[in-house]
Design a protein around this nucleic acid. Structure first.
Length: 200
DNA sequence: CTTTCGATCCGT
DNA sequence: CGGATCGAAAGG
């Protein structure tokens, strides 16, 4: 799909609950505008996290880390995991809901050269095929935490025309509790997915 | 304070 | 399969 086919997402778009927003994010464009030019990719894999979900950072209520999840949809929630990698989330729902969607994989579109440099690898297939990888490739860090996806450096664009996509729901990965829930969404058979990507 | 442990990645 | 490497969260 062409770049011209994407338009900025409206605030309203993010107000739906995470399990509904997560599949809607598949096919959307994640874009970061840097001083050296744009970096972007089409989202192919997401996971939904809600307040009543034991795997969610918001499960125990609002804390110093998860506060963006409680500020309403349309913000970036970026946190450090395993002391090594950043993970990027799109907050969702109305203020106070404590919800977010983890973006796990993206198909690179713009700024491939910058991504390769940031990642230190050449295979495009592995540039953004994981939450930590895509943050590294995009140059997303905790300095972006809490910023608006409607007007900030990082933005989310939706397809102008709704396109029919084959989106699959399955189990999330890397978590201990809440495994039963089918809250991981992937673009079926996409070669750009993270590891641990099959159906289920 | 101190301890625990995680929504991951990479090399072996 | 294990190590890296940090800091939030929880426990004392």
């Amino acid at each position: 799909m062409k770049l011209e086919e994407y338009v900025p997402a409206e605030q309203e778009f993010f107000l739906r609950t995470a399990p509904l927003l997560a599949p809607r994010l598949i096919g959307c464009l994640l874009q970061r505008n840097t001083d050296s030019g744009p970096v972007s990719g089409v989202i192919v894999e997401t996971e939904a996290y809600t307040r009543d979900d034991p795997a969610s950072h918001s499960f125990g209520g609002r804390t110093g880390r998860n506060w963006p999840m409680f500020r309403g949809g349309g913000l970036a929630y970026v946190y450090l995991i395993y002391g090594v990698h950043n993970c990027f989330n799109v907050t969702s729902g109305p203020p106070g809901s404590g919800e977010a969607v983890l973006v796990r994989a993206v198909r690179p579109l713009q700024g491939l050269e910058m991504m390769r440099r940031n990642r230190g690898i050449r295979e495009d297939r592995n540039l953004c095929s994981g939450p930590g990888k895509l943050c590294r490739a995009f140059g997303i860090d905790r300095g972006h935490n809490g910023t608006s996806l409607l007007e900030g450096e990082i933005r989310l664009l939706v397809p102008r025309r709704e396109e029919p996509l084959d989106v699959t729901a399955g189990r999330r990965v890397g978590i201990s509790r809440g495994r039963e829930l089918n809250r991981r969404f992937t673009l079926r058979d996409s070669p750009w997915l993270s590891r641990g990507s099959s159906g289920s």
